[in-house]
Structure formats: structure tokens, C-alpha cells
Write a protein that binds this DNA or RNA. Structure first.
Lengths: 125, 125
DNA sequence: AGAACATTCAACCAAATAGTTGAGAATTGA
DNA sequence: TCAATTCTCAACTATTTGGTTGAATGTTCT
């Protein structure tokens, strides 16, 4: 599922939709900020927010869909963490983003393709 | 209006909301891509899209609100262009974004504050 | 002046969002 | 076993969004 051969521009677009949409909410950015310090379980993550646990759970799902966070569920608790690879490679990712701004969206999309492909163990960079 | 002294985290958050939201739509990203090649008037921009001119006009307004594009209206036509300063400084901007991912959102916010302040001729970095 | 053009405004609609509450499912611990 | 904990699912609501159409505004051209 989600094989590299199926990847096309629409998929890139959808991925970017997800990422940017995920980042467009202050609560979600705050969650990411929190997770950038340390992985945490849902309840702990939700505590600081003046919002129901359910709302946070949904936000986390949005972040997960955008592949910005991971979950490690064991037992009844699930630990959320910033996604390892996108973050380790964030420098390169955003470097390509810069190219987007300077007009070379294609290179950016190309990079996106590669980044998302790696999770299928397909190929690297 | 929008003085530096009024700038606080909420304003930063609102700005980021606008930017990321603007980027979360494929049509708007396509518009940016187009504008990254050359400034264009609204009608020309709208042509390739299977969408009413009005819809494009709205998208442009969204991009304008996010301060990603500028408009130069003369007569009945208004020429849209990628915003000069945010794009020239996009490298630095995104460099700070990277810090966001590595956990230092505060530095990022600080940079955002500066970036948006400059348009009031307030101060630089 | 009058017609064609460029753009936006206003009102409307369907779909998506962000939140709520309440129930349910599974896990843990007494 | 039974109660408490952790989390998600489902249904609902209000608001926002992305699109539409039609009218309005202003500009240019003849």
C-alpha cells in the first residue's frame, strides 16, 4: 500500500495538503512543540490545553495523518513522538522547501516523493 | 496599526495560521508556483484553472492575507507577485523553521516577530 | 457616451473543521 | 472480579472553507 509506483503529483499534493493543514492550527503546533521536547502519552499532552481529551486526540490524529508524529501504543497508553525520519531529515526537507520559494517546485516535489517513499523501505534519498 | 509593541505570541500564532493555511491548498500552491516564475494579472493567473475567476480571486486574497503575495493595481488590472521580502528572506525564515522542528520554537517565533515587524519599518532583525 | 474588460463584492451552498458530550473497548491494578 | 484509567469512536453543533452565480465598480477603448 502506498507504493512508490503509485506516487504521482496528486499524491504529493495530498501530502502537502496534510502537512500544511496540520501546521495551520496553533494547538497542533503547540503539541508538536511539546513533543519536540520529549515523547508523551495522550493524557499528558492534553493536560495543558483548555480542551477536551477528545479534541486533543483528534488533533493528534491529524498530525499522524500528516506523518508528523508517531505512536507507540502499548497497553492502554499510546506514546506520541515526533516522527523520527522526517525530523532528522527536516533540514533537507526544508532546504527543498526553500527551492519551492525560489521557483523550483519540481525539485521540492521530487524530494517530497523520496521522503514519503522511504517509509515503505523502498529507497533512500 | 500592527505595531511591534502589540506583537505577542498570539500574533505570531495568527500569522503562522495564515501562512500554513494558505499553503495547505493545492490551487494556492499552484498559484504561488506560477507567480514564482513571473508576476501576472488575475485573469491570466486564473486561466489554467478549472474554476471561476471569483474563486481564484478569493485564493489570491488568502495568499495576500498570509503576506505571501503582493498586488500592484493600476487601472483595471492588478498584477500579483510573490512578496519580495519574505521570499528574499525565505532562506532565513525557513532556517528558523528548522529550529522549530529541532525543538526551539521560541527562536522561530522570535524570528517571525522580526520578519513581520519590518514591514512597519520598525526595526530589522 | 457606450461597450467590453478586469476585478471584487454579496449572497448563497455543500463540505470540512474544531469542538462538544456520551458511550464503548481495552488495560491495569486492588 | 470490579473499579479506575487511557484512549477512541460516534453523533451532534457551530463555524469556516471553497466553490458557485449575479450584480456592482471602475477602466479602457472606439
Amino acid at each position: 500500500m502506498k507504493n512508490s509506483t503509485l506516487k504521482n503529483d496528486d499524491a504529493e499534493d495530498a501530502y502537502l495538503d496534510d502537512v500544511f493543514h496540520a501546521l495551520s492550527d496553533p494547538t497542533r503546533r503547540a503539541l508538536l512543540k511539546q513533543l519536540s521536547k520529549a515523547p508523551e502519552k495522550v493524557t499528558t499532552l492534553a493536560e495543558p490545553f483548555d480542551m477536551s481529551l477528545n479534541a486533543i486526540s483528534k488533533h493528534l490524529k491529524t498530525l499522524e495523518k500528516a506523518q508528523l508524529i508517531d505512536r507507540d501504543t502499548s497497553g492502554r497508553t499510546s506514546i506520541c513522538s515526533l516522527r523520527a525520519d522526517p525530523l532528522v531529515s527536516a533540514q533537507g526537507w526544508l532546504d527543498h522547501y526553500t527551492r519551492y520559494w525560489t521557483g523550483n517546485l519540481d525539485a521540492f516535489a521530487q524530494h517530497m516523493k523520496t521522503e514519503t517513499k522511504t517509509e515503505d523501505g523502498d529507497e533512500q534519498q
